[in-house]
Computed example of a mutant assay.
Amino acid sequence: MAMLTDEKSRTDLMNRLKRAEGQLRGIQRMLDEGQSTQDIASQMSAVRKALDSTYVRMTVCFMEQELGARVGDTPRGRKQLGEVLEEVQGLLGKIR
């Protein structure tokens, strides 16, 4: 499978992962400090959603890259591809 070549997409994904990493460190601190399991569970849920969202974004970026290479780089083709991928991202987002 190909890798993402768009630097903007890769930067966006890395930033999302770094935020999730920070959230995980925060959860570890919460455990060390003996905070309530309800608060910890809430933060774990937030991290899971962040990772799910990052996965969906990565998938859409990959699809955009690969389909764009096959469809061609025309304004009409980019517009149509963008519309389809926006719908796909919305659909994938609903499964979280």
Rank of each mutant, 00 (worst) to 15 (best):
M1R: 01
M1A: 03
M1N: 01
M1P: 00
A2L: 09
M3F: 05
M3H: 07
M3E: 11
L4F: 03
T5C: 00
T5M: 06
D6M: 01
D6I: 01
D6T: 03
E7R: 09
E7S: 12
E7K: 07
K8F: 07
S9H: 13
S9L: 05
T11L: 13
T11M: 09
T11P: 00
D12K: 05
D12P: 00
D12S: 05
L13N: 06
L13T: 03
L13D: 05
N15H: 13
N15P: 00
N15D: 13
R16D: 08
R16V: 04
R16G: 04
L17N: 04
K18C: 01
K18V: 14
K18S: 07
R19E: 12
R19G: 02
A20I: 07
A20C: 11
E21Q: 11
E21K: 06
Q23R: 08
L24Y: 07
L24S: 08
L24R: 08
L24E: 14
G26A: 04
I27T: 03
Q28T: 05
Q28M: 08
Q28L: 10
R29F: 01
R29K: 09
M30W: 06
L31I: 14
L31S: 01
G34F: 03
Q35P: 01
Q35I: 02
S36A: 10
T37Q: 07
T37R: 07
Q38S: 08
Q38C: 00
D39A: 15
D39Y: 04
I40V: 14
I40M: 01
I40Y: 01
S42F: 12
S42G: 08
S42W: 08
Q43L: 00
Q43W: 00
M44K: 03
M44R: 04
S45L: 06
S45C: 00
S45E: 09
A46L: 06
R48G: 06
R48N: 07
K49D: 14
K49M: 14
K49A: 12
K49W: 10
A50E: 12
L51E: 03
D52V: 03
D52G: 12
S53M: 01
T54V: 09
T54E: 09
T54M: 13
Y55W: 01
V56F: 02
R57G: 05
M58D: 06
M58T: 02
M58C: 06
M58Q: 09
V60R: 01
C61Q: 06
C61V: 02
F62D: 07
F62Y: 14
M63K: 12
M63Q: 12
M63V: 10
Q65Y: 05
L67I: 14
L67Q: 06
L67A: 09
A69M: 11
A69S: 12
R70C: 10
V71K: 10
V71W: 11
V71A: 10
V71L: 14
V71M: 11
V71I: 15
G72V: 11
D73F: 02
D73S: 13
T74A: 11
T74R: 10
T74N: 09
R76D: 13
R76A: 15
G77H: 12
G77V: 03
K79M: 15
G82C: 06
E83Y: 13
E83V: 14
V84K: 14
L85F: 07
L85Y: 06
E86K: 15
E86S: 15
E87A: 15
V88R: 03
V88H: 03
V88M: 05
G90M: 07
G90R: 14
L92R: 03
G93E: 11
K94D: 06
K94E: 09
K94V: 01
I95R: 13
R96M: 15
